[in-house]
Amino acid sequence: MKACYIHSAVSISAQNTFETDLNLSESNPITSKKANANHPQYKTYIAPGALRRMATGVKMGVTAGKKALEKANITNPDAILTGTGMGCIEDTENFLNALIANDEAYLTPTSFIQSTHNTVGAQIALALQCNAYNNTYVHGALSFESALLDGQLLIKNDDSRSVLVGGIDELGKEFIDYTLLVEDKKHGVQVPFSEGASFFVLSSEKQEKAIQLNDIKTFSNITEQEVPTVLNEFLAENNYKPKDIDAVICGNNGSVYDSYYSKARAIFPITTSQLHYKHLFGEYFTASAMALYLGVYILKNQQIYDTLIIGDNSKNSIKTILLYNQFNGRDHSFILLSL
C-alpha cells in the first residue's frame, strides 16, 4: 500500500483564495444570507465559446481543476474525481423553469445537457482529452469526501500515480431560497450559504516537504456521544494520539449541531490549535473541500490567520492537522493530514 500525498491545492471561494493563494489579511465580510464566490477572470482558463455555455459551478470547477493540475505539473491525470452536493443547480433550475413556464414546449437541450451532476468532471476530461477513470459523487455533505476517499484508494491500492479531486457547489438562484426558507432561524445554520470549488492533485510521489493525506473516514450517522470514541479510534488506526494533533479544523456553522464539534474538540489538549472557517467561507455541501485547502495551506506555509483561530493559542510548528465536518448531525467526515 502506497502513501498518498497532496501536490497541489486550489480554491475559488467567497474569500481571496484563487489569484494569489490564500490571503485573509483583508477578508471579505460575508454578512448577507447568501454569499457568492469571489470569481476570478474565467476567460484566462476557458475558451470564450465554451465559457458562454457554462454555469457558475462548471466555470469554477474547470478553472480550479486546471490550475490544480498546472501547479502540480500534471498534464493528464490518472483519474478525475468530483463531488457536488447540489450538482448543477443553476442549469437544473433553468431547464425546470423553462419546462414549467412554457408548459413543456419550446425547450432547448443546452441547460438539460449541462444539468447532469457529472458535468464538471466531464468538461475537465473533455478539455484535457483525458480518457482516464472518471467519477462523480453526489452525497450531500460527504460528496467531496467520497471523491477524496476514492482518490486515496486509487493511489494506495490501484496504481494510479496522480489523481485530480475536487468539490464544487454553486449557489443557484431559486432553490437556495427554499433551503433558507425551511432552515430553522434560531437553531439552524447561522453562517451565510455560499459556493466554491476546491481542487487537489493527489499523488503517490513523495516530494520535498510533501503533505500527506494520511487517512479519511466517513460515517452516515453517529451520535454526539459516539464522537469522542469514533475520533479516538480513527486517530489510533493511524498511530496518533490526540496530543499529536497540532491543529483541528471543524466545520462550525452556528447551528445547534455545533455541539458535535464541541465533543470532538474536547478530546484534544490545550496545546492543539482550534480552528473554524465557515464564518468566512460560508456553508455548502462541499465546504469541507475548502477546509482541506486551508489544512494544506497551513502545513505548507506554517501560517495560521488569526481570523481562523478559536481562542488564542497558536503553535509555532504545525505538522499534523485533523479536519472534522458534519451537516445537521449526520454525514460525518474525519480527515488526517501531516507534513
Binding site: 450538482g87 447532469t116 462523480t136 452525497h139 466517513t218 452516515s220 450517522n221
Partner: peptide, 21 residues
Amino acid sequence: STQKMADAIGITGFVTTISTA
C-alpha cells in the same frame, strides 16, 4: 434517497451516492 435507504436498513458507516448519468 441514499440517506433514507441507509437509515431504513440501519447502515451507519460508509454511505455514498454516485451520479455519472
